[in-house]
């Protein structure tokens, strides 16, 4: 019984310390970080929003999306992103992967179907379809595709927009990032920025 009393006494001291910690770590810290972040890196702190012309903006009403967040499209004149398992697809209120395991028959079936679909769409064989094109990302809002998947889509996009393959290939190259410092992460192509550039080129 006395142990319980002692614990209670320590809990009350704990509660006082916790309230102080809540003010310091729960309000002062995030608000100071917010202040500094907004002052120094306002565009990034607000979500790296871009407009239809590719310009930076902080106003979601002007933006067509965030450079960091992938979005779905079904326009054959644009580059397609990876499959998304976020909600019904590209749902930023429900970001997630499929969470299907490596032996899951549904996953194997989905991959095979996507391969067939993409191969038919791009006029290539199934074994030319890269892995990222047929697998759902972790976040469900992956902004990037691999350079291989971008290359696969060049001809279709060029044809649909009346552009030459070379012109579209050049746009892809312009929007390809290599590994950071040459060895971190993977090379990638930002789909939204690339699509904005394609639409600008088409005029």
């Amino acid at each position: 019984m006395s142990d319980l009393f002692v614990l209670l006494r320590h809990s009350l001291a704990g509660l006082r310390v916790l309230i102080a910690a809540t003010l310091l770590c729960g309000l002062v810290y995030p608000l100071v970080v917010t202040g500094v972040a907004q002052a120094a890196f306002g565009w990034r702190a607000d979500g790296s929003l871009i407009t239809e012309s590719g310009a930076h903006t902080n106003d979601p009403a002007e933006a067509v999306g965030s450079a960091l967040i992938g979005q779905g499209n079904d326009d054959e004149g644009l580059f397609y992103p990876r499959p998304s398992a976020a909600g019904d697809g590209w749902d930023t209120l429900s970001t997630y992967g499929s969470n299907l395991g490596p032996e899951d028959p549904d996953l194997v079936k989905a991959i095979t179907e996507r391969q067939r679909e993409i191969a038919a769409r791009e006029g290539v064989t199934v074994d030319q379809v890269p892995a990222d094109a047929v697998t759902a990302s972790a976040s469900g809002i992956d902004p990037d595709i691999s350079p291989a998947y971008a290359a696969l889509q060049v001809s279709r996009v060029a044809r649909a927009n009346g552009l030459s393959d070379q012109a579209v290939t050049a746009l892809v190259a312009e929007h390809t990032d290599g590994r950071t410092f040459g060895f971190l992460g993977e090379a990638r192509v930002n789909v939204l920025e690339l699509n904005i550039a394609v639409r600008a080129q088409r005029g």
């Binding site: 490596p102 892995a131 047929v134 759902a136 972790a138 990037d144 691999s146």
Partner: peptide, 16 residues
């Protein structure tokens, strides 16, 4: 099975 069919273990991974 799934990584072999797809060509790489990219299910549930981000491109970057």
């Amino acid at each position: 099975t799934a990584p072999q069919v797809a060509g790489a273990a990219m299910e549930g991974k981000e491109t970057r």
